[in-house]
Amino acid sequence: MMRLWFYIMMIGWLAISCEKVIDIDLNDANPNIVVEAELYQGERDFEVKLSYTSSFFEEEEQEIVDNAFVTLTEVGGETVEVPYAEDGLYRIEDYLAKDDKQYTLSIDVDGVNYSSTADMPPNVTLDSIEQRDPMGPFMGDGGKVLFLHWNDNPDQENYYRVIYALNDTLRRSREDVFIFDDGFVNGNETEIPLFVRLFDPGDTVDVQFLAIDPKAYDYLLTLNTIIGNGQPSAAPANPNSNFTNGALGYFAVYNGDQKRIIIEE
């Protein structure tokens, strides 16, 4: 919501303001470890990407971590090693993540342990996707807004993420990080506009509608404030990581559904 207000202000300012690229001296921080790990309910490949932070401006390859010992534990169940694959990626093929379980990801690098534990959120079903004509400041030239319909469980706080593919290409740019909670829409039959973009007639859109664990949700929420995709903050800070020992990044656990829509005129 604040995002809207910010855009409106920007419209006003742009009329009178001018923008230019400037030089700013930034210090180089000591490298810090970054974890990116997403676990989906069901049988799927599970990947963990490990890297280090780099200097802000310099164009350089991101330094990867290839000497880590990574394990995934189903709490109260089995612990498996996630072996190193390539390019900083650690992978188990066809891992079965189950409902109602808790998972711990543990990473040992150079004698330091980073770990995170997350609950598998209850499954959510996407009932339908509907296209509509937008109104208000979002009116485009013939584009359509997608509305997602699902049954929200009113008895609990639910956190959602939508990841979509447009014409078979997964969209994961900064504008596409779309998350929400049920604060404004708590109830049974619920719908929400997928406000990442307008879609054109003929587009094929595959929507993954995912319940996400609250800690990863908090990470993405705070990530959005610093990548210019949420309420801009007066004092930016690193997103709230769910790892111990100051590792950046997240261990996200998803449980959801997928549907396709082909946009009509």
Binding site: S51, Y52, N238
Partner: peptide
Amino acid sequence: ATFPSGRYELEGISVPYFTERNGYRFP
């Protein structure tokens, strides 16, 4: 002001890395 002192990649997005609050200044 708070400016980044590093960066990293996550989901293919370049994310700024901050080390201290208000450690920098506007011109």
